[in-house]
Amino acid sequence: MESPPQDGTPLGRRAILRTAALLPVTAALTAGCTAFSQPEEPDPLEAVAERARSDAALARAIQQAHPDLAEETAAVEAVRSDHARALRQEIDRVNPQTAETTTSIPPTPAPPAPQEADEAAAALKQALREAQRQAADLVPGMPPHRAGLTGSLAASCASLLEVLA
């Protein structure tokens, strides 16, 4: 932390800038122990990223339970993992102070794969349809760069549905 100038001079412009630059770190350090800190509005991409992780986990679980679906589910797992990574990168880019706390999120536990292969495929398709809708619904209100990202992600989920068709 910056200590106040000892020589009695008022805080100069440089000192103020340095203090401001230190703020995010301080906020990150105190976030865990301040009961009264106002939680920030969560990044709307958090929910999209969470869904991507959970779809990847579901695809992995189905892959293990139903070898007949291995090829298609591997494709879904790979693409949805790419989505999760890219979203995390974008969330952290916009708000670097959450980066430290969010990297410690444990991997999404694998949801149970339905016992019948066709039920499993149907569950994954349903998840992808919801993911497509979730991303598409965000497109109109997003800043330009994110409109491209979420629009592309929605199109990708639609494409994955073709792989499972």
């Binding site: 494709a75 790979a78 693409v79 790419d82 989505h83 890219a86 491209g148 990202l149 629009g151 592309s152 992600l153 199109a155 990708s156 494409s159 994955l160 073709e162 792989v163």
Partner: peptide
């Protein structure tokens, strides 16, 4: 899919 090209679905089309 028709010509067997992999991967058939891209993570970020465009």
């Amino acid at each position: 899919i028709t010509i067997g090209e992999q991967p058939a679905a891209l993570p970020f089309p465009g």
